[in-house]
Design a binder for these strands. Sequence first.
DNA 1: AAAATAGTCAACCTGATGGTTTAATATTTC
DNA 2: GAAATATTAAACCATCAGGTTGACTATTTT
Lengths: 122, 122
Amino acid sequence: MLNRMVEQQPATLDAVFHALSDATRRSMLRELSEGERSIGALAAPFSMSFAGASKHVKVLERAGLVRRRVVGRTHYCRLEAAGLAEAQGWLSYYERFWNRRLDVLEALLRAEDEHAEAGDEK
Amino acid sequence: MLNRMVEQQPATLDAVFHALSDATRRSMLRELSEGERSIGALAAPFSMSFAGASKHVKVLERAGLVRRRVVGRTHYCRLEAAGLAEAQGWLSYYERFWNRRLDVLEALLRAEDEHAEAGDEK
DNA sequence: AAAATAGTCAACCTGATGGTTTAATATTTC
DNA sequence: GAAATATTAAACCATCAGGTTGACTATTTT
């Protein structure tokens, strides 16, 4: 079950990471994390045309990060975070590498502290 | 200290996510997770020109995911996972969203199990 | 019915991407 | 020193990305 989530779906991972590689889209996701937003509402903070925002939303949809609900003339978008989990799954493989570095850093700091506690602080 | 890692550095995040949006580059990172590799060694599995691989490595370097050590005519690359930690830091904000979903799924499965255990399995 | 609103679509522009090939540079080997 | 090796650089190509504008569709308001 977890497997299904971490599983490699190259096309999808491409789409997810590509979607995340743009600061405007990342901001839109942040906004959507607070609740549903219309396309117009998503466009507003960027003084960007509706058409521009529409394109960004489509990129997010293609990546499976956003879903759309049409009510009358308004399109409401909401966050679909499962795709982000896929990205995290991929990244988690590498955790050990930076954890290792953090371990070293931690050890260094601890050593420093112990040194200080030992009474040689000036 | 953790803060410094999770901190938003838009330009860098752009570069990191962009670097990850290509399957070839993700494979290269996987390869580098096993140890240092020359540009040629990185190119080999993809039947791609040296020049092509060289470009990919430059993208990874720009994103801070790879570092290079030149020994004679050979350029050795190694993984620099700190940049990946930045990406994970960004994603971690959204964890609660998919965790929430997993909780629901888990609850559903548990409910199913209990139902089964209750003796009504046929 | 007319006007305003929310959004898409298509065309267009500029600049980046991913790939190639050919030439050039630096190093190593013969 | 000549030949082979490892790599970059530069030019080129096709395609994609991010953005705009203008025209169109569908809904809502007046």
